[in-house]
Write a protein that binds this DNA or RNA. Sequence first.
DNA 1: AGCACCTACTTAAAATTTGAACAACAATGT
DNA 2: ACATTGTTGTTCAAATTTTAAGTAGGTGCT
Lengths: 160, 160
Amino acid sequence: MDRDRPAAWRTYIEASQRLFTRLEDDLRAASGLSFADYHVLVLLSEVPGHRLRMGELADRLVFSPSRLTYQISTMQRRGLVARQPCPQDRRGSEAVLTAAGLLALREAAPHHLHSVRTHLMDDLDDAEVACLTRIFTRLGRRLREADGGDATLATMPGDD
Amino acid sequence: MDRDRPAAWRTYIEASQRLFTRLEDDLRAASGLSFADYHVLVLLSEVPGHRLRMGELADRLVFSPSRLTYQISTMQRRGLVARQPCPQDRRGSEAVLTAAGLLALREAAPHHLHSVRTHLMDDLDDAEVACLTRIFTRLGRRLREADGGDATLATMPGDD
DNA sequence: AGCACCTACTTAAAATTTGAACAACAATGT
DNA sequence: ACATTGTTGTTCAAATTTTAAGTAGGTGCT
């Protein structure tokens, strides 16, 4: 079984790549939103006040700070979000969901969810969904922890 | 259970993003290769003659043609691959693995595999690996079919 | 207060990716 | 042979992303 693990990894990464590409194409065609746009809107819509600090948003999106700056700037130009100075900390700013942004999300969500169902979920039985959730919940938790704490790769075994 | 499926999807995509970022950082630190570089080297190393047509390589990498052109150009500059005209079809060219490229791969592989084990595989039990493989093998097959024959070929039971 | 050092975000320049247009060739029909 | 259409890969400009500085606030120490 141990020899199958590299194969498992490659299967996973290639199919994921294809899936992301496909879902992004669908989303863009249906709503004009990129994947990143959509995720920003979802995250903001879920949070009280519909606003998040830039840094917090970057963490959740797994984006670099400057990438988020650019991302929010373009969304701001399109009226999907606004940028406001943070009251507590005058260094910071917050991204705030606008009415137009919320509307765009409400418009796009059903298409996107349908797309996710079609391309991924409908093909999975309940046990597989459970397994997927379990694996990636655990993985996500571990990686988030590692990002904060000691992240170094353990010593290399001299295997070849 | 149906309400958990969007959550499952988001868990999966966020953890995947973190994982890819992490593995790429490790790979780059250990070998100076990007994820794309590494993947190109792996694909070429596995194929007879260590050469692939540009189009074929692009398909397997899930890259656009022009992105592959750029990717191969940079690898060519670094001596990891060479570009040769295709004998059968004078329109085409092939990417060929060089000795230096093969060496770079042999050098990088153990680090990378160790990284994959550390960040993903060691955390999964056998049942989870099996589940992961099953899900993404099926998904990959379905998406490849969808990408190719839009209407007529999609429903054909392909013999591979 | 004054000063060294963080932190949060932005900006600027370089690298990468995309998308449309292109050139070279192959395949097909006349 | 010759025009017609489809493939294969490249090129160029524009959009996106990364990397490296820069800016403006905060924090803590004396």
